[in-house]
């Protein structure tokens, strides 16, 4: 008896060691690119270029933080790119929030002709790859005069960058689910008290669904930050951060300054990581929920 207890205990400890080793191993795998980015961005141009194989750590005195980050920052007008990206994200996120709140309310709360059919039609578009829309949207944006290869104004660029993204079927679906979870009795209670639909939406539904709305805001804004293809198509002269990043260091021949390149990559990645660290709860919940929808 005593022996079996000890045996189980040893086994349990062995198993734990195994599990943690496995987890630590993959955690390292996940962190490596970040580490490599940070490490390289701190090395001097000479160190990167002359050390073969490269060292995996860096001494304090070898750190070239200011140099690399300043030159990366100056290699392209990141300040402009970032401001522009933030503006585009703010506009399209605000638009998305309002349009999806309205529509999700209609689908979750109101009774109208063809509601179920319309909703089905909407969610079926989620199965369609975005590339199919991009082609025509490119034409539409050109036809509307918001984009021309010959040049465009800043306002036109903003219109082209934001208008197609002022609503989203996915977020509409996501928010409708959140609205649907609010018990019907709350609506009935509000009705008995003489609350209008408009007031019920803003005073009761939106506050209750606010975690979901915050999730949508974050995911949408982060999406804009990482947008690459659409801005490249319709705002060639007004790039967003991600376009700026790739284009500033596209050259693979010759003397690429890797430290500077990695510093720039970090500059672009860092805001995302900071947002993530502060709003982890909302992002992770949003993502794990979106997986269960099926």
């Amino acid at each position: 008896m005593q022996n079996t207890i000890r045996e189980t205990r040893i086994r349990t400890i062995l198993f734990k060691v195994l599990v943690y080793t496995f987890l630590v191993g993959f955690a390292i795998f996940v962190l490596i690119p970040f580490y490599w980015m940070v490490l390289t961005s701190l090395k001097s141009f000479q160190q990167v270029r002359t050390e073969v194989p490269p060292s995996l750590i860096i001494g304090l005195k070898d750190i070239r933080f200011l140099e690399n980050y300043a030159s990366a920052w100056n290699a392209a007008p990141y300040y402009q790119y970032m401001l522009r990206t933030v503006a585009v994200a703010a506009i399209s996120t605000t638009g998305t929030i309002f349009t999806t709140i309205f529509a999700a309310f209609a689908f979750a709360r109101l009774n109208f002709k063809g509601r179920d059919f319309l909703f089905l039609a909407l969610i079926s578009t989620m199965m369609i790859p975005g590339e199919m829309f991009v082609i025509t949207n490119y034409i539409t944006v050109s036809n509307l005069g918001w984009y021309s290869p010959l040049g465009q104004t800043q306002t036109e660029a903003f219109l082209a960058l934001t208008m197609p993204f002022m609503t989203s079927v996915f977020y509409l679906f996501f928010l409708r689910q959140a609205f649907k979870q609010i018990p019907d009795e709350l609506y009935l209670a509000a009705k008995v008290d003489g609350t209008s639909d408009w007031k019920y939406l803003w005073k009761i539904m939106v506050p209750i669904a606010s975690p979901t709305i915050i999730t949508i805001v974050i995911l949408n804004a982060m999406g804009t930050w990482s947008a690459y293809i659409w801005p490249k198509l319709v705002a060639t002269e007004y790039p967003l951060v991600t376009n700026g990043l790739r284009e500033a260091y596209q050259d693979f021949f010759g003397m690429v300054n890797y430290s500077q390149q990695m510093a720039a990559a970090l500059i672009v990645t860092l805001p995302l990581l900071i947002v993530f660290m502060f709003l982890k709860k909302y992002i992770m919940r949003g993502v794990s929920r979106s997986g269960i929808k099926g």
Partner: peptide
């Protein structure tokens, strides 16, 4: 484990390219 989800595909792609660099 969640970090890769919130990063920028282009930026991390550049980092990966450099991880796979033949010399450095």
């Amino acid at each position: 484990f969640f970090l890769p989800y919130v990063t920028n595909a282009i930026a991390i792609g550049m980092a990966f390219a450099f991880i796979f660099h033949a010399d450095y």
